[in-house]
Design a protein around this nucleic acid. Structure first.
Lengths: 219, 219
DNA sequence: GATAAAATGTGATAAATGCAACAAAGATAA
DNA sequence: TTATCTTTGTTGCATTTATCACATTTTATC
């Protein structure tokens, strides 16, 4: 359960006062849980229509296929949502899980309940729906950005596309990658060493400057 | 503007009666437009925070990069939403546009208005927010499915992943592709002839049966 | 500070994929 | 109907990418 201070900064309960918050917790069967780094917060093979809202910390949605190859499908930060009804399991053999990268607080709520008319007519139910709409719109945007990157035909184009997105996001042609180069390779769904080679070529052709995770776009 | 009959089947105004619908049209500055096949409904270079809801017909969200390579980012059917705030343009040089495949009706509404508290306190404003939440959740699911496919490392894995998704969607291991093989190559972001070769291998190894757009999963 | 673990950087070689070009089959329009 | 355009199917060859293997650096842990 959130303290009054934490409620202020909560992405999903923003604008809702403490009394209503308490009432809604039971209304939505909300449960908050805390996790330590490396802990698995959510396994998508679990049944249920719950949606998790990452209140604090960083986590990743990981897919592990039948051959054991693991891929980062999403990187989650505070305010991001996840859940079975927001994912798509193309393959029954794959396992999908949310792994905490840092200590995390997650609030689980019953998603179908949000889409239904509230019988108890919570005063702020509709505000929560709007907040949820905002969060899921953000998620859709993030996913669209990923599709934009992954739909490029070569490692070079994927890298440049991703770098341009980051530059736009940071408002500067110089920026620091939010994760390791190994994870970047994963993010653009290519082999790490092949990506490193391409990075070198981009550097040699003076299309980018790059040392470690510091990138500068020169084109 | 929708007729009373059309209102019944409208994905976004579902559950809203005709009088309220009329009131809300002005409240949301909603505009409906019709398009003929091949017509460009929406160019993302256009300014504004409008969101389009495809009320009728089929359309595609196409990205054309600086080299003229075009890629289908999304296939839109009735009930799907699109808009600048739901996309991500990684590259300023790219153009993004919604091209109608058939005759289409599109309803444009002001998206930020939805997220704000309604000053006029429309009786059914909150219902519309819930409907929008449902539509955008669907969109997030669709995008997650696409990421699932595109993040696979080989053409083979992409094809199998896509086929499994379709099989699950149709509830049968035999299904018909919703678009041409050329467009499928585009969808999985690979070269068409390379994809055809891989399809042949899958057929030879008896992992699938395929003639034209009829696919049967055998694994 | 020592040690282990993870991340970075590089290269040789094999495998997968893209490209270009063409023919045949189907679909569409005049 | 013919003529035209799109889709499907196939190939040889060039290019890109993955695999594997290793050395080096950085980061985390005790």
């Amino acid at each position: 359960m959130l303290s009054k201070e934490e409620l202020e900064g909560s992405p999903i309960f923003e604008g809702i006062n403490y009394e209503n918050y308490l009432a809604m917790l039971s209304c939505f069967q909300a449960v908050q849980k805390s996790y330590r780094p490396e802990e698995v917060a959510y396994d998508f093979s679990r049944v249920g229509e719950q949606v998790g809202i990452l209140e604090r910390g960083e986590a990743s949605l990981i897919r592990i296929d039948e051959d054991g190859v693991s891929t980062v499908l999403e990187n989650l930060t505070a305010g991001n949502v996840f859940g079975r009804s927001l994912a798509f399991s193309g393959d029954v053999n794959d396992s999908l899980e949310v792994v905490c990268r840092t200590a995390c607080d997650v609030l689980y709520i019953d998603f179908p309940h949000i889409l239904k008319r509230c019988e108890k007519a919570c005063e702020h139910h509709s505000l929560l729906v709007r907040n949820m709409l905002r969060l899921i719109t953000e998620k859709a945007q993030t996913l669209a950005g990923r599709v934009d990157v992954l739909s490029r035909r070569s490692i070079r184009d994927k890298l440049l596309c991703y770098f341009r997105q980051q530059a736009e996001r940071e408002g500067s042609d110089t920026f620091t990658l939010p994760f390791s180069l190994s994870m970047l390779a994963d993010y653009i769904a290519t082999d790490r060493s092949a990506m490193m080679r391409e990075l070198k070529h981009l550097r040699q052709e003076k299309l980018i400057q790059a040392e470690g995770r510091e990138i500068t776009l020169l084109c």
